[in-house]
Simulated scan of single mutants.
Amino acid sequence: MGIYLLFSAVLFAGKITPAAERPELYLPLLKGKSIALVVNHASLIGRIHLVDYLLKHGIKIKKIFAPEHGFRGTADAGAHLGNSRDPRTGLPIISLYGKHKKPTKKDLKGIDLILFDIQDAGVRFYTYLSTLHYVMEAGAEQRIPVMVLDRPNPNGHYVDGPVLKKRYRSFVGLDPVPVVYGMTIGEYAKMLNGERWLKHGVQAKLTVIPLKNYTHDSFYSLPVKPSPNLPNDRAIMLYPSLAFFEGTVISAGRGTAKPFQLYGAPKYRVKKFSFIPKSRPGARYPKYKGKRCYGIDLSRVDIEKERRRKQLNLSYLRDAYVNYSDKKHFFLGNSFFNRLAGTDQLRKQIISGASEASIRKSWGKDLRKFRKIRTKYLLYP
């Protein structure tokens, strides 16, 4: 099916404006249609939720699809979410997490257009990407157009990490892209279509409403945390490097006041810094709940210095492995770490003590290939 793109002249100076805040570009395309929204707590126009804004302007919303963490963005990572109704509007909410990750034919009955507006973090294993993949696939199969309201990528200034291998596909990585892919959600949607990565090579009838005044080198501080454990710019910046710990015995700070801004475990050898994870909103059952962990505090890392690296910081993973006293059990049976990395090679390299330079060299060929693909779909310099 054909791809169509609404792209007005974009001036790359001044305040960055998310597509949701450019209603003059998309409201005329929604009039008279029955709409399904894929949204969460960050789908805002200023302080007004997109759902409320569209209803106020007479748009007929039939239902809401909610990704991981739910419509209000408060659920734990990986928590089961059931279907419900929004108490404010009475609209039905269908969870796209757990066993029901893709809208069904029944879900989409009577829908004329699917509108997707989710704030991404720019990392392959952040599951909103997989939700986009399945939503576009369902739209293509049911011949229902998909519109993406583009939003800035806070990690959009670089491309790095191993490219996902097909055998390691899962909900934390469906597509053959590196850990950090340097694209907005709208650009990524174009790539899914153009590279025919959807099931059986189907293509959605796609509209991307563009950002204004955005470049890939722009620094954009998210006005709302995209999920419970990414509370600030530093956590979002460190997330691509620290989320590998989710597949190891190391805590990345869930259950503390500084998630993804520290790391450690009870058996970490250096005892200069410690923390105790506790049950908190968005992390009810954190790793090592109530136990003292030793490790490294990254809450004072210079954000600008890290941004200038334009690379994953492998020193954290290598340090944790070297300083963990029970290396045999470091990788939690290997499988989840491999899915996060998109390959089993990184695990083997860490175990063997490979240098950072040799690890990066092993990514080179795949990264060069991906960068050529990526270039075809960029909307912004």
Rank of each mutant, 00 (worst) to 15 (best):
L312M: 09
Y239F: 15
N83L: 02
Y288H: 03
A252C: 09
A189C: 03
V270N: 13
E21T: 07
T17Y: 02
F125E: 00
S170M: 03
I35G: 03
F331N: 01
G122E: 05
V38N: 10
N153R: 12
G82C: 08
D107Q: 09
A36K: 09
D233L: 03
H57L: 02
Y380L: 01
P381V: 04
I118T: 04
M183C: 05
N155L: 07
V38T: 11
T207W: 12
F244R: 01
K305P: 03
P145H: 09
G194E: 03
R309N: 15
K310N: 13
Y4H: 13
G186W: 10
D217I: 04
L198D: 02
H41D: 10
N232P: 08
I45E: 01
A257G: 09
S84V: 07
I64M: 05
P226I: 09
L54K: 05
Y4W: 09
K62M: 13
K199H: 14
I45Q: 09
S84M: 09
L113E: 06
F65E: 00
F12S: 14
T207Y: 12
T104M: 11
F331L: 02
K272T: 15
H57P: 07
H49A: 05
L312Q: 06
R254C: 04
R300A: 02
M147K: 04
I144N: 07
G82L: 14
P286E: 01
Y126E: 04
F71M: 13
F337P: 05
A252Y: 11
Y168V: 10
Y126L: 00
V146P: 03
K225N: 11
G353H: 15
F331E: 02
I209H: 03
L312G: 03
H216D: 01
K328F: 03
R85A: 06
K109C: 12
V202Y: 08
F12M: 11
I59E: 01
R339A: 08
D319K: 12
K190E: 02
A140M: 10
P266E: 06
K310M: 11
K205F: 07
G58I: 12
A13F: 12
L30W: 11
R280K: 14
R318T: 11
D326T: 10
Y181R: 01
S279I: 06
R347P: 04
P226G: 10
V39N: 07
I373K: 14
E141S: 13
R85M: 11
L174V: 07
S335G: 00
